[in-house]
């Protein structure tokens, strides 16, 4: 009964790919001192886990929606919102601030998920509205300024090293990844989520409650994203409104590197974790070599374009068959090659 063993544990097939990618990144990083100036030690590994904790959960949040075939643009706003709410309400009790951030995420996720599921809408226009509106809300809450967090004890505690390379906050982030990975591997939720992502009609026919999965995923995604913002704000001791889509760029790249596909139906939390670690290693490599800020933009943007192109439907088909080459020809030449069928006529 091999079917009872989850895919991830069998370490075969596409589920293995993110781990291989991570291994390549890790080996390249370890070899870095031989090719460039700079040292690599345990402090760097600690930094890698710190940046993993900083933004890894946003990648997880976005990745979950990508697995069910959606794309939640609003994660970069919920991330900011969570931080702002936590800093403003968690002065006396950090747990209360985090709870409020998570509650806000659940509400936002419910509204967006409900609209996407019940009105059968594409998630991009819906979450675009959410993205802009919540960004505005963050500016309103913060009065367009950075807000400091008063309880420095919390900040120090979260950043305290544990076992040399970890900190409390990186352990929290890793813990959430592992819990979700377990949920995906050992319960029907992961299977259903992938089913919803790959073929919604077939999933419905086989008894998957699509609406519940979609709404539930949006709620957990927004809650994780809000919590991630809260965690970051506590550990930096401030929250700041910021309009860049940098978190979105990072999260998308990490998810795609982690074996999630934009077309949905593929991927799991462990893979996404590997993708995040790859990017965290890359960031650390850029820091070790003392690269300027623009290099980070170029590398992250370039990497995102590369993984997107690799993930692109026509290119993937091109790789496997010659059909996409035909599609590309059709797209630009307008005529099918002699003897070939016109691809995918509707």
């Amino acid at each position: 009964m091999s079917a009872r063993i989850p895919d991830i544990l069998r370490f075969r097939g596409p589920a293995l790919r993110p781990f291989l990618t991570l291994a390549v990144f890790a080996i390249a990083f370890a070899l870095l001192p031989q090719y460039a100036s700079g040292e690599v030690g345990t402090a760097n590994i600690a930094n890698v886990f710190t940046s993993f904790a900083g933004i890894g959960l946003v990648a997880l949040a976005l990745g979950l929606t990508m697995i069910i075939g959606e794309y939640d643009l609003s994660v970069s706003s919920t991330y900011l919102l969570g931080g702002m709410l936590a800093v403003k309400t968690g002065g006396d009790s950090p747990a209360l601030g985090a709870a409020i951030a998570i509650a806000a995420g659940l509400v936002v996720g419910f509204i967006q998920g409900f609209v996407v599921a019940k009105l059968k809408m594409s998630s991009i226009p819906v979450t675009l509205g959410g993205f802009i509106a919540l960004l505005g809300l963050v500016y309103v809450l913060s009065n367009s300024k950075s807000i400091n967090y008063s309880d420095l004890k919390v900040t120090l505690k979260l950043n305290e090293p544990v076992l040399t390379v970890f900190t409390e906050r990186s352990l929290i982030a890793i813990g959430i990844f592992l819990v979700l990975a377990a949920v995906f591997a050992f319960t029907w939720l992961g299977r259903d989520a992938r089913a919803v992502g790959s073929d919604r009609k077939a999933a419905r026919t086989s008894g998957v409650r699509i609406d519940r999965i979609v709404i539930g995923t949006f709620m957990s995604s927004a809650a994780i994203s809000c919590f991630s913002g809260a965690l970051l704000a506590y550990s930096l001791a401030y929250a700041t409104p910021n309009r860049t889509v940098a978190p979105l760029v990072f999260a998308t790249t990490a998810a795609l590197l982690g074996g999630v596909s934009l077309s949905g139906g593929r991927g799991n939390p462990l893979g996404i974790g590997c993708g995040v670690l790859c990017l965290a290693i890359l960031n650390e490599a850029l820091a070790v070599t003392g690269s300027a800020a623009y290099v980070t933009y170029l590398v992250t943007g370039g990497l995102l374009l590369i993984v997107t192109v690799v993930d692109a439907p026509h290119l993937l088909r091109w790789w496997r068959t010659t059909k996409a080459a035909e599609n590309l020809r059709l797209a630009f030449a307008g005529r099918p090659a002699t003897g070939a069928r016109a691809g995918g006529s509707a």
Partner: peptide, 12 residues
């Protein structure tokens, strides 16, 4: 040409 996602191509 290759059917990549607009949102992601444009943020990249």
């Amino acid at each position: 040409g290759i059917g990549a996602n607009t949102i992601i191509v444009t943020i990249g």
